[in-house]
Simulated scan of single mutants.
Amino acid sequence: MNQTQNHFKTIAVWHPYFLGGGAESVSLWILQALVPYYKVTLFTLTPPDLHQLDILYDTDLAHQENLTVKRMLPEALTPRFIDTLIANSPPLKLSFQHWAVRAFKSMNTEYDLVFSTYNGLDMGRVGIQYLHWVHVVDPQPDKNKGWAWLMMKFSEFSMDQLKQNQSLANSYYTADRIKSAYGIESRVIYPPVIGEVEVVPWEEKEDAFLCSGRIVAPKQTDRVIKILQGVRDRGFDVKLHITGGGGGTYQRSYEQKIMQIAEQNSDWITVYQDLPYKDYLHVIARCRYGLHSKPEPFGISIAEMVKAGMIPFVRKNGGQVEIVGPHHSELLFDQPSDAVEKIVQVLTQPARQKALLESLKKQQSLFSTEKFMAEIQAVVAEYFQN
């Protein structure tokens, strides 16, 4: 890459808000990949705390001279206020999204490239979009009515414009859904997974499971607890470490429910909330196993488990299968009862555990921050060469 020449290129990146999760990690690492070579402007509703995000995601963005943050809402509307509204009201979330679409289209005309790191988007011109899933900003065709229809009209959202962008997908599973939803092809670039985990010998690890990700109902944290309670009922004294990520404001009542269950079972359940990434890595280094109950478009936390040398048990449909590998059928489950049986089978076979660990090592090379950044840099370089 000709760094001197590319320093004169400017890129407008659209990510409307930062509430935690895998999409946020991807956006931050896309910025990390681009700022050494381009002048990058992040367009967002309210400015994020880059210092805090650097701590949570192990990026280095707060002091980058080539990064500018442009807020699209007045300063009187604080990030905490806006985040609370978005997290607790789907209609307001949709409204703010389309406000951000409209504002971005009016503000990005002078940039050399526009880049949505928050799913498919009409940016007013052709650019690059990274899709974590489909119909996130644009509603599903059968739901494009009422308030959704009004918001699409407000932002003058063009599906034809969305389809002209160069699309990147977080997994082949998502790429298939993109093809089905929009009729367009996409290039798969697996999300960034940090691999600097302390190497702890298997014999010294805890007989513990990790459940990682936001503590919200869609992540099915309660089902993970139910599964492991079933395993314990079969005579296995396993522990559970739950790590809530991102620092968002999602579904406080569900989070409180999980905290209450954890307190009632404090002899085997520990909850860690909003850990700095370095501390999170210390927790995952100590766990032998991982458990994730939600089918995911990708599943960064599952890739982290694989990178950390765990044996993860995941749902048998979704992008997370690509992380674990479809050939590891004994790690893929459907119902909670199925998960209990498969976990028990692995726990009772030390030789099989060793074989799985060796086999899973082959999956680790698929995911890293270095690989992710190199692929993003290549995509942008190719865009400017065409």
Score class of each variant (00 low, 15 high):
4 T>S: 12
6 N>F: 11
13 V>A: 05
15 H>V: 05
23 A>M: 08
26 V>I: 14
37 Y>R: 14
43 F>H: 04
48 P>A: 05
61 L>R: 03
65 E>Q: 15
67 L>E: 01
69 V>G: 01
76 A>E: 12
76 A>S: 12
77 L>V: 06
81 F>P: 00
86 I>Q: 02
89 S>P: 01
89 S>C: 13
95 S>P: 00
101 V>K: 05
112 D>C: 03
113 L>S: 02
116 S>V: 03
120 G>T: 10
124 G>F: 04
126 V>K: 15
126 V>Y: 08
127 G>P: 02
129 Q>H: 09
130 Y>C: 01
131 L>V: 05
132 H>N: 10
144 N>A: 14
150 L>R: 13
159 M>Q: 12
167 S>Q: 12
168 L>M: 11
171 S>C: 04
179 K>R: 15
187 R>S: 10
188 V>P: 04
188 V>L: 08
189 I>Y: 02
192 P>D: 08
208 A>P: 05
212 S>M: 11
214 R>A: 05
215 I>V: 14
216 V>Y: 03
225 I>A: 02
227 I>Q: 01
230 G>F: 07
231 V>D: 04
235 G>L: 04
236 F>T: 04
238 V>W: 09
243 T>R: 03
245 G>F: 11
249 T>N: 13
258 I>P: 03
260 Q>V: 04
262 A>D: 02
266 S>I: 08
268 W>E: 02
268 W>D: 01
269 I>K: 02
270 T>S: 12
277 Y>C: 01
280 Y>P: 00
281 L>K: 15
282 H>L: 11
285 A>E: 05
296 E>C: 04
319 G>M: 09
336 P>W: 01
337 S>W: 08
340 V>L: 11
341 E>C: 02
345 Q>V: 10
349 Q>W: 12
350 P>D: 06
359 S>L: 01
361 K>D: 09
374 A>K: 11
